[in-house]
Design a protein around this nucleic acid. Structure first.
Lengths: 212, 212
DNA sequence: TGTAGCCGGTGACTCAGGTCACTGACCGGC
DNA sequence: GCCGGTCAGTGACCTGAGTCACCGGCTACA
């Protein structure tokens, strides 16, 4: 599959700091794939051969332990996945899962080119440093939530974020899925959503959940 | 304060991949400080001007929220602090606290040299990538503990790690401190330590806690 | 048109852990 | 000696959340 002219132009704009030369090289050696919703692209224990950069769509990265999940972050357009980067570059196994949440187009950079690019183009490093510090900060935030907040606040903020990331005002999502992304049980979500509805924080419509 | 010849030699050995030229430059432009136990070196909201590399001793990095803390990681010799790196390089505020746990000698790299070093010496990047991926993995591990394990396991593993990091078989530590590093209350720790003592996992001696 | 499968809602129960209030042991200093 | 401080131990109690069992509603489809 080929990058469209529009995508090339968008990519150059988003990553201008990489310089034209490197960008052309990346485009030359990388491949584009289009993935349908719910495609698993990374699982725990897997070795990584390519590093994705999302062009369009949304990827969800999460941790899992005995069928209890926890959402770690979303990869939005122009972002990449540091777990792939880390695992790929050190030839280690992934510790997380990743799955597409929408129809998603990704640019896949071949892992064996990365070290040379990092060496010859210092700007490439800042791309990953940025991603790293962003993800690290997010993870810190997640920890604070787990430790310092109760479930209803976690649910509410989860919904708010999900809604902003997906760009939908009314979230069509199962209670079951909220539960697993927050690492808890379905009944608990049902109960608390009901409570939040009574408190006027959300509304549960047949089409989905509306945040007020 | 000056680096001792021994320290210079150790530093070169630990970071050989940086190359002699860069190492000399680092040594030239950085300063050494010796800090006593319990010196606070970073607090939330603070801006960062230097990036520490620990030469000897131990630094504890933790998050705090309304006098509830959570241990994030220890900086051991030859390691650095990515929160300083991130905050320093992007001129952002720190989101964590750091405090010395032992008498500690640190090498402080001036933040304004870092971008040039990163640009001219690609090997420098790998130092921070390594630190980043290490810390990120640790943080993931911490999250899994919070979410998937009960407190007694967390306490036990905390003691085991503390004991290995400090190199002490008998840990002289207050229940209060364990509580705050795990983000819980003193009574809870007392209760669970008693339980673990009955189960034969630890022993509480006047000098401290022994892990069996 | 029945039935199997998802989905959300509920009540009853359990349990881990946080909170409160108080105790007694062990200092150190004056 | 007494006073103040730190530290650990404990019982009573509360609460958030996980678990279990069971509905009833909707949908799809054979």
């Amino acid at each position: 599959m080929e990058l469209t002219l529009q995508e090339i132009s968008d990519f150059k704009k988003a990553h201008y700091y990489l310089g034209a030369e490197l960008i052309n090289e990346i485009i030359e050696y990388s491949i584009v794939t289009e993935l349908i919703t719910d495609t698993e692209i990374l699982r725990e224990g897997q070795y990584v051969k390519q590093i994705p950069i999302v062009l369009k769509g949304l990827i969800k990265v999460y941790s899992r332990y005995e069928d209890k999940e926890l959402l770690l972050y979303y990869i939005q357009p122009d972002e990449s996945c540091i777990m792939s980067f880390t695992a790929g570059i050190r030839n280690e196994q992934s510790k997380v899962y990743a799955v597409t949440e929408d129809q998603t187009r990704v640019l896949l950079l071949p892992i064996d080119r990365i070290p040379a690019w990092l060496r010859d183009h210092p700007a490439m490093n800042s791309l990953f440093f940025n991603q790293f510090s962003m993800r690290y900060t997010e993870l810190l935030e997640t920890i604070r939530y787990l430790l310092y907040h109760k479930l209803d606040k976690r649910i509410y903020d989860f919904l708010v974020e999900k809604s902003s990331v997906k760009g939908e005002k009314i979230l069509n999502i199962r209670h079951k899925q909220i539960a697993s992304e927050l690492g808890t049980a379905r009944e608990v979500i049902s109960r608390l959503l009901k409570k939040m509805e009574k408190e006027g924080k959300i509304r549960q419509l047949p089409e989905g959940i509306e945040i007020l």
